[in-house]
Write a protein that binds this DNA or RNA. Structure first.
Lengths: 157, 157
DNA sequence: TGGGCATCGTACGTACACGAACGATATGGG
DNA sequence: CCCATATCGTTCGTGTACGTACGATGCCCA
């Protein structure tokens, strides 16, 4: 198609705006968010202080540290995770004895989650490194740009 | 709440900067990037025009559309994906007959990938919707903010 | 008070994402 | 020419992430 070598400027004129730029995957938000998230995760992994704790496990433990006790569903909503995803995260935390559970007294459908003593100890330790993770991730930006980025990301969630 | 109901201000004084704000998970880049990426992915899924094509499959096909033929490793570098991840993406695209492969003439280690005719047809169709995905994802922002966000994300990758 | 509807947690399937290890091949230096 | 080293693609294991379906339970209201 096109003619001999194919490439550059595929025949999609977006037709939307007249003077629209060519469509480059590297300039699309979704692509940039995926790459940025990749980088942030890898910085987290080497900076947080325990290579076996993942970002989602960390957020879950931080929330449990704040609230003391939460149902699995409620925790999932607080950290922005699907209940199906939450299930796996909680299972792994329980297997490692960082989280414990007991049935909800008044609602037999729910399970109340809380940190074990070891979980408390670990999250207290990891929280010290939390700021360093963000600092390292945002390093390429000036202070003002850092604030801007956080604000813009908040707006599109 | 503020006082007796269990928390706020856990006892971690970050100790780094004197006047540092309390550490809230919702204000950390990594967390915001995860949430933003989630939202972008779900917008992609309902907007791109084929629910069976994922964002990474899409980027891979766009690159193959641009370059005509690429080794698996090279493609992975272009779209920012690990070679192990690439393996699965390519396998699924081949299973659906959207991508084909042939051995590299001069290097027996490599496999050259290209779009099949059906792959060409599909990506040409999906590319029409590409801009709409980004537009929808960036909808909460003004034009200037949109440009800012893209620039800031590029900087931290 | 009972039936319909929502919510909670679980299970299964699919797809990313990456580290680690591996075999095959390529390449450069001695 | 041969070996050390690097690259290419594969496989395995672990951990998100979400849709869908399911059973159990709770709750509202007719």
């Amino acid at each position: 198609m096109r003619s001999n070598v194919a490439r550059r400027q595929p025949e999609t004129k977006p037709a939307s705006s007249p003077a629209s730029r060519p469509y480059r995957i590297e300039e699309q938000v979704g692509y940039l968010l995926r790459r940025a998230h990749q980088r942030a995760s890898s910085i987290f992994q080497v900076t947080i202080g325990d290579p076996n704790i993942t970002p989602t496990q960390y957020s879950s433990m931080v929330k449990l540290h704040e609230y003391t006790e939460l149902s699995q569903n409620h925790l999932g909503r607080l950290v922005g995770m699907d209940k199906a995803t939450m299930q796996g995260v909680v299972r792994r935390l329980k297997e490692r004895r960082l989280v414990d559970s007991r049935p909800h007294p008044g609602d037999a459908r729910r399970t109340l989650l809380s940190l074990t003593t070891e979980g408390q100890r670990l999250i207290t330790k990891l929280l010290v490194n939390g700021p360093a993770v963000s600092r390292e991730t945002l390093k390429p930006l000036t202070n003002q740009e850092q604030r801007q980025l956080l604000e813009l990301l908040s707006k599109i969630i």
